[in-house]
Design a protein around this nucleic acid. Structure first.
Lengths: 236, 236
DNA sequence: TGCTGAGCAATTGTTGACAATAATGGGAAA
DNA sequence: TTTCCCATTATTGTCAACAATTGCTCAGCA
């Protein structure tokens, strides 16, 4: 629980990269969440140094609190702290992004299978509805809407599966690669590729077929891995 | 209170469970590691409160450092800190232990498959050797030795797979359920059940058959889940 | 006897200052 | 002009003290 990550998932973080003062943030968890949001939104770039004093000023809080927040985020894999060298926004390489997505593939496979076992008629209907909306969004070329539906689909599947541990892991992993996922969403023709995959996932869960659901989910994320590998820009 | 919890890792850690002063531990990471060891060894019981001042005294360090260590361990899921209520050793219920093991099953499946793809003749030989030693240990009834070999096997498979992300996840998850795993090792007839499973895993990796390796690993950990469910003691 | 609530002790949350360490820049020698 | 070394500076690591919160004890009352 906690970390209900409704942070900017797969879609662009709007170029509003101006650093607003972010007023009146006090407690440790608030600072942590605010800082996470800031990183996820791209207000701090990967590799950028997070000087404690600066973050203090921005969050209007003390170094102690900032430090605690930084430690937390390090645990989530969002920042990297090296002794006496301060905290940096973790720069996940393409290779790491692939690894992370591979692990996610396995865990989301478990979630999909579990969802297929536990789904009830109401939820099944809900899934089908999302499927219909997704197809419409793709046909209309509404990428933003499709991306939102994508998140809704995964969230619903998680909810049906009710596997808290798997959810936690997936959420943590997802946070680490938002940037790469964003790059992915720019690849042309991506929705057309993923739509049928999503539809297969939905169908398998609706039909209460755990093996098929897992296979479909894995196939889906496997294609994400492929796409990631295909981008394969250098450095970083 | 509660000084003797003489179970640790996978096997009993010798009954020397007196809380030694743990001399000269200073830096933050040292304190963190020492505290983690203490928890994993069962020197602190699940649910037990970790009063900062007491830990300070034991580790011979300041509250600041202890606090940082506790935050880290909270990130690993070993302790739970509630605001204004202090830190407790996290008490993972049987249901949670099952969930955690399920996720581990998926990720270790990935590791096994990857190992089967990447194994080289030298490592294959090493795997076979461990397999032979395991069989001998079971036949001789040397449970402790078998347990050690079990860890060595998993470690070697991880090394072959070279999947840092998966390793990290598995390690974190493993840490959260050491206690339950220890309970498991007490179940009579467990080695006899798991030996053939381990042998199948080894064979599949040696034969460079990723699918079989994943299936074998999943079957293995799936049987662990079953055993866990079978224990199913109340409470906690 | 059981319950309520105020006061108290114990424990955690927070702050600011100080020490230790790494990054920076300038000056001297080759 | 380039390179190396040392002093300076910026930044993090650590600490001890103070403030705030929690849970508990025990007196008083129904």
């Amino acid at each position: 629980m906690a970390t209900d990550a409704d942070h900017g998932g797969q879609m662009p973080p709007e170029p509003s990269t101006e650093r607003r003062p972010a007023r009146a943030v006090n407690t440790a968890v608030q600072v942590r969440d605010a800082l996470r949001d800031a990183i996820l939104k791209g207000e701090y770039l990967p590799g950028e140094r997070l000087v404690e004093a600066q973050v203090c000023e921005r969050m209007e809080t003390s170094r102690f609190t900032v430090r605690a927040a930084l430690a937390d985020l390090a645990g989530e894999g969002l920042v990297e702290v090296r002794r006496n060298r301060g905290a940096h926004v973790r720069k996940v390489s393409m290779a790491e992004a692939v690894e992370i997505t591979e692990v996610r593939m396995m865990v989301e496979g478990l979630i999909a299978a579990r969802a297929a076992e536990l789904v009830d008629p109401d939820r099944a209907t809900e899934l089908d509805e999302i499927g219909v909306l997704m197809r419409r969004a793709v046909e209309a070329g509404e990428h933003r809407r499709y991306s939102d539906l994508n998140q809704r689909l995964h969230a619903l599947v998680q909810e049906i599966a009710g596997h808290a541990t798997a959810d936690r892991i997936v959420e943590t992993l997802r946070g680490q690669i938002v940037r790469h996922q964003y790059m992915l969403s720019l690849v042309p023709g991506r929705p057309e590729t993923s739509l049928p995959q999503h539809e297969r996932i939905i169908a398998a869960i609706r039909d209460r077929d755990p093996k098929a659901a897992e296979a479909a989910m894995r196939e889906h994320i496997s294609s994400v891995v492929e796409a990631l590998r295909a981008i394969d820009y250098p450095g970083s």
